[in-house]
Amino acid sequence: MTRNMAEVKLGPVNSIPPGEGRSFAAGTEKIAVFRTRAGAIFATQAQCPHRGGPLADGLVGGTVVMCPLHSWKFDLATGEALFGDCGVKTYPVRVDETGEIILTI
């Protein structure tokens, strides 16, 4: 599974306000990155598996994001669907010592 794994820098963590998400274009993939109010950082596929809603525009509560279009809910840590039929892909992501967001894809 290590095939083609790469780390990419997404810029400083405060480019995402607490409790919100932003979408990033990483190569051909679109990734949504979320920063919770508690300070944790998560990354998922950018589009909702339901009808392609922009997850980064969703509401975040704890480690759950709710899609802005029809309110499907996903656990940011596992990608599991808490409401809806299908979960989302998640990606490893962290903040390094300099406050930079590092995503692994």
Binding site: V8, L10, S23, F24, P54, L103
Partner: peptide
């Protein structure tokens, strides 16, 4: 008022 409020897609840096 807020960082990147109106960007729908941010570029990656590296």
């Amino acid at each position: 008022p807020e960082a990147n409020q109106f960007s729908s897609l941010l570029p990656v840096l590296a």
